[in-house]
């Protein structure tokens, strides 16, 4: 088996005294689409945020193409330099529940910012890449609009373009449709699905069970800071092994 793009080993995280991740192992090969499901408080969003170092973790390792993210496990374990961490963050693309577009920049500038300031591309190249991705998410005609002039679905599509334009190894999606009006959910899910079809490696936290079923190679069910069950969507959704997953699926919306 080839070397995984993303490998999470025995990940532990505490908020004060409460342990929210209690030893998570997960690994993604190039092109894998993995959805994390589970009730709120199960640690799925925290897990995703650890990969991008928006949360610190206290034990275990996260590797992107064999490079340790955030910490050198040592011993002694130590945090990597901020500049290295910034470079590593650029290797993963994050899409947030609340879009988090930069409100003082046009859609185009939202996408070019990372390209010019992090990748140090010349402006014309950055604009060309940004235009390509804005076209891809169906927003070419909105390139000069500001976030305040866009609908939630359009904002989230710009946010996806912003993340994917950086050509990340892995895309991370954190409940990207939870803040959207129901009629805007599909335009965003279609974009995500298109990326999956193109072979983008993706880790998604989602409450859209039907979508997780359709798009994922594997589904991970998290419960109380651990991975309770993992497998192809057909197996997990049709024949859950654990009691908890069966209960979760019974109450989930499809």
């Amino acid at each position: 088996m080839a070397q995984p793009v993303l490998k999470i080993e025995n990940l532990h995280k505490k908020f004060k005294e409460v342990e929210v991740l209690k030893g998570v192992d997960l690994s993604l090969q190039t092109g894998d689409v993995v959805s994390i499901i589970g009730s709120s408080g199960s640690g799925k969003t925290t897990l995703l945020r650890c990969v991008n170092l928006l949360e610190e973790f206290h034990e275990g390792r996260i590797l992107i193409e064999d490079d340790e993210v955030g910490y050198l496990s040592g011993p002694p374990r130590r945090r990597r330099k901020e500049a290295e961490i910034a470079r590593q963050r650029a290797m993963t693309g994050m899409v947030f529940q609340q879009f988090n577009l930069f409100p003082h920049m046009s859609a185009l500038r939202n996408v070019t910012l990372g390209l010019t300031k992090v990748k140090k591309l010349p402006l014309d190249e950055a604009v060309a890449i940004a235009e390509k991705w804005l076209a891809r998410v169906g927003l070419s005609d909105r390139r000069d609009h500001y976030p305040g002039q866009l609908s939630g679905g359009q904002q989230q599509r710009v946010a996806i373009a912003r993340a994917v334009a950086m050509n990340p190894k892995v895309m991370l999606f954190d409940e990207v449709t939870s803040a959207l009006d129901p009629e805007l959910v599909n335009e965003v899910l279609n974009v995500v699905k298109g990326l999956a079809d193109d072979g983008m490696t993706m880790l998604l936290v989602t409450h859209e069970m039907k979508f997780a079923f359709e798009v994922s190679d594997r589904v991970v069910f998290m419960n109380q800071g651990r991975i309770e069950e993992e497998g192809p969507p057909e197996e997990l959704f049709r024949a859950p092994k654990s009691q908890r997953l069966a209960e979760f699926l019974k109450n989930a919306k499809f």
Binding site: N52, L53, L54, E82, A83, A86, R87, R89, A90, M91, T92, G93, M94, F96, N100, L101, F102, L113, G114, K117, V118, A159, R162, A163, M166
Partner: peptide, 10 residues
Amino acid sequence: EAGKAIGLTF
């Protein structure tokens, strides 16, 4: 967070 996520330094 969005700024950090695209790899910008503080």
